[in-house]
């Protein structure tokens, strides 16, 4: 059966982002015990794969690169209906930028799902939001990629008609053969997890692999393999008046008009 691979990124739950901090020296994100959730767009990617499974009998493999404590997050993908999950997890992989991340995920896919027909990603992650990983995975695997995918028609399950949303226009593409697709939220509505799924997920294979397991070139992973660096962080300079106005609606409205008038705005 053809195989779809879904790249899933566990991200710190956006509800707790006020607890995130950055290591001022390395610029690496300190996640500080915040629970992780599946990056929301990745669920839309998974839904595409699950529909291929429902309609054409495809197999669905989930891959991820993340710290080991995120296995529970991957269980959720299994509960939604994926068949198996692989997590690349290793200290050596820490501090990776998008290039090193894509290289690692591509290595994982080469090792564990070399006969993939389709790789699906969310078009961006809520936390990093670079949108760079999917095209870079495609490069490392030597297959084409389509991003900003807002619609996929599976037709016969062999030829796919894909809409790329360019904002000012749409490109409609047709493709057969292995490809990487990065989807937007317009593409579908992901299914919810039910109790049967959760029970089934407990028995599904979830394997954690180290860098050594993946035959990776150590100079291309983690911080060493990342060409970009965070030089420093700064608070944007604030040259604003910051005059606070309080009181009853009528008073504050009057006061605001006066101040705007003073600065020549009204």
């Amino acid at each position: 059966m053809p195989e779809a691979v879904v790249c899933v990124k566990p991200i710190p739950d956006p509800k707790h982002w006020d607890r995130l901090s950055l290591d001022p020296k390395t610029g690496v994100l300190r996640r500080g015990g915040i629970p992780t959730v599946i990056n929301p767009l990745d669920k839309h990617a998974l839904e595409i794969a699950l529909q291929l499974k429902d309609n054409f009998g495809w197999e669905v493999t989930v891959v991820s690169m993340a710290p080991p404590e995120t296995t529970q997050t991957l269980r959720e993908a299994l509960a939604m209906g994926a068949d198996r999950a692989f997590l690349a997890s290793d200290r050596l992989l820490g501090g990776a930028d998008t290039l090193a991340t894509a290289y690692t995920l591509a290595g994982l896919i080469k090792k564990k799902a070399p006969n993939f027909q389709m790789i699906l990603c969310g078009n961006m992650s809520l936390d990093g939001s670079t949108s760079q990983v999917a095209p870079q995975i495609a490069h490392f695997l030597g297959v084409p990629h389509i991003t900003h995918v807002s619609k996929i028609e599976a037709k016969d399950g062999i030829t796919f008609k894909v809409t790329m949303d360019l904002k000012l226009a749409q490109l409609i593409l047709e493709h057969q053969g292995p490809v990487v697709l990065a989807v937007t939220k317009e593409v579908n509505l992901p299914r919810l997890v039910n109790i049967m799924g959760i029970l089934a997920a407990e028995k599904k294979p979830l394997e954690v692999l180290s860098a050594a397991d993946l035959d990776l070139d150590l100079s291309k992973i983690g911080q060493n393999g990342s060409p970009t660096r965070v030089r420093n962080l700064f608070m944007p300079e604030i040259k604003r008046r910051r005059e606070i106005i309080k009181g009853e609606p009528d008073e504050v409205a009057e006061e605001l008009i006066n101040r705007l008038h003073q600065v020549g705005m009204l």
Binding site: D97, T98, L99, A102, S129, T130, S131, Q132, V133, A134, P135, Q136, A138, H139, F140, H145, I146, T147, H148, M164, D165, L166, K167, S226, P227, T228
Partner: peptide
């Protein structure tokens, strides 16, 4: 832009260089 975000990462990967987004 969407087109730029589609192109730039693949170019950067092929050139084995860094890319910052947005």
């Amino acid at each position: 832009t969407p087109l730029g975000a589609n192109l730039a990462p693949r170019v950067a990967a092929q050139l084995e260089t860094g890319l910052s987004a947005h």
